[in-house]
Every structure is written in C-alpha cells, then in structure tokens.
Amino acid sequence: MMHTLTYTSNRAGTVIDLADPEGIMCGQILELRTRTWEFELGYRSLHATRPAKTVKVTGLVYGIPALEKAEELFDADMYAYLNDAAKPGVITVDGWSQTCLVVGHEPDYTSPLLVRGDFTVALLDGVWHKPVRQSFSRSTARYNRGKGYPYDYRYDYAPTRNVSSIDNQSALPSRMRLTIYGPVSTPSIIIGGNKVIADVSVPSGGYLIIDGTGSPRTAVMVAANGDITNVFDKTHRDQASNEYAFATLPPGLQQVSWDESFGFDVEYWLEQTGLPWT
C-alpha cells in the first residue's frame, strides 16, 4: 500500500504531492511496481540491462488549477532538460526514488471540478533507490588524552578502538556517498575488503564528499567558507588492489575501520528494479 508519492523539480525546487486528496490523487501505481529487465538471449546465455522506460500512473485531480500548475512545472522541467542540460525531476514513493520526467497526461473524464487521466512518466534510472545513512564519529578519548592511570607509566595507553560495521540489508551491491569531516590529512577508511583513500588535506570546518551514487562519479572538497574544489584525481581508483574510492557496498555485514582521528558519514542506496510492495 502506498502512503506518499511526490514529484520534485530539481530545477525549481518545487515539490508536488501526487497523493493529495484535495489536489492530485494518484491511487493506481501498479506500473511503478513492475520489475522488468530488457534481455537478449544468446546460445545458452543471456544479456540484460535495466534501461529507462515509461509507465502510466492514473490520477484524479480535484480542482483544475492544481492540474494546470503541475503541467506547467512538468513542461518547464522537460524544456530545461532538453535545452539547458538541467537535471531531471525525482519521483519518490514511500522513500524510494528515481529521476524522471513527466512526458504526458491523457484525460479520459472531465467535469467542472474533477479530471481523471493517466500521467506518462519516463523513469530514467532503471532502478529505484532508497538512501540509508550511518555516521561514524571521531574518537575524542583516543586523540585527546589517552587512558589515565594513578601511576606513571612510560607510555600512554590509548582506548581500544570500537568495532564498527554496516549491515547492508539490500540483496544487491549498493552505491555509496561518503562525507568525511575535517580536519584530516589523507583520510583512509576500510569498508568490507575495500580501502577508500584520498590524497588531500581536509581543513577544519570543511568536508570531503566522495560520491559514487551518480553518473559521473565525483569527489569534491568543500571549505568552511563554501569554496568547492574538484579532487577527483586525488582519490585512489585501483580496483585490482582493492583501493577503489567509488566501490559499491556488498550485501550483508561489512566491517568498518579507520584511525578514528576524524568523523564521516556513509550514505548507501538500497536498490530494487521495481518498487517494493511493503
């Protein structure tokens, strides 16, 4: 059962509620739940992809102004995408999203107060994704004072590192976005069997974003004053040595380790070909 359905314009920042009983109410979304791979059979083999596709969503519109406002936004987003290289919109159903453009509306019933018809939506990602975020904090005890004892010893005994992990509930590998907070020089993080390394110095108040969720993949450093620097070429991208900054997160429980001198967030995307039923 669907609870929320929205369209977000990346161009205008406007969000249209498509499950609004007093505006646009889209109740039939069966085609959004369709799980389809395009495939070609070979000799005892199969090649498959998940390309962009169009689906129809049936909607009841209570009030013509709501429909006119939505169609103006859909047209403006389409024009900007085709002519200005603008980002497409995003359709979100109960937290699951993908980029899209609304390419048509076919009414089959009209009255002074009500319009019923099908919206044609071009789904551009081929998959639905739902972000999950997990934060890992800097160990202040480990890097501030060590561990105190009532007697003098030749060494400071640092607190034991916490055992950290990510439990990826997806059945598929998940794309990741890492946000690493400064100050830190040459941050290194091991997730599962892969090491993420960037040869940069992240200043205090700044942060580094290593984003493997989009296309193309990006790595940028944001200073405390908001200045942005492209540092893609500073990331390690050696897949053969398991030092790939844009590696996906495998399913299941993955151990996470770092020197705990800095904090970071991991956002990973659960992915499904069709919308889940629950």
Rank of each mutant, 00 (worst) to 15 (best):
H3E: 06
Y7C: 05
E22H: 07
I29V: 12
E31A: 15
R35N: 12
R44I: 00
K53N: 08
A66N: 10
L67E: 09
E68I: 09
K69I: 02
F74L: 05
A80S: 12
V93F: 01
G95Q: 02
W96I: 01
S97K: 13
V103C: 13
S111D: 12
S111K: 04
P112G: 15
V115S: 09
F119M: 06
V127R: 05
H129Q: 07
Q134G: 08
S135W: 00
S135D: 10
R138V: 01
S139W: 01
R142S: 05
R145P: 00
D152R: 09
R154F: 06
Y157P: 07
V163N: 11
I166R: 02
D167R: 08
N168A: 14
Q169F: 10
A171N: 14
L172Y: 12
L178M: 12
G182C: 13
G192I: 08
K195P: 03
K195Y: 03
V196L: 10
V196Y: 04
I197P: 04
V202K: 02
V202I: 14
G205H: 04
Y207E: 01
S215C: 08
T218W: 03
V220I: 10
V220D: 09
T229V: 12
D233R: 15
K234D: 14
A240R: 13
A245R: 02
L249N: 07
L249Y: 06
G252H: 04
G252P: 04
Q254I: 03
V256D: 03
E260P: 10
E267P: 12
Y268S: 13
P276C: 15
W277Y: 15
W277A: 15
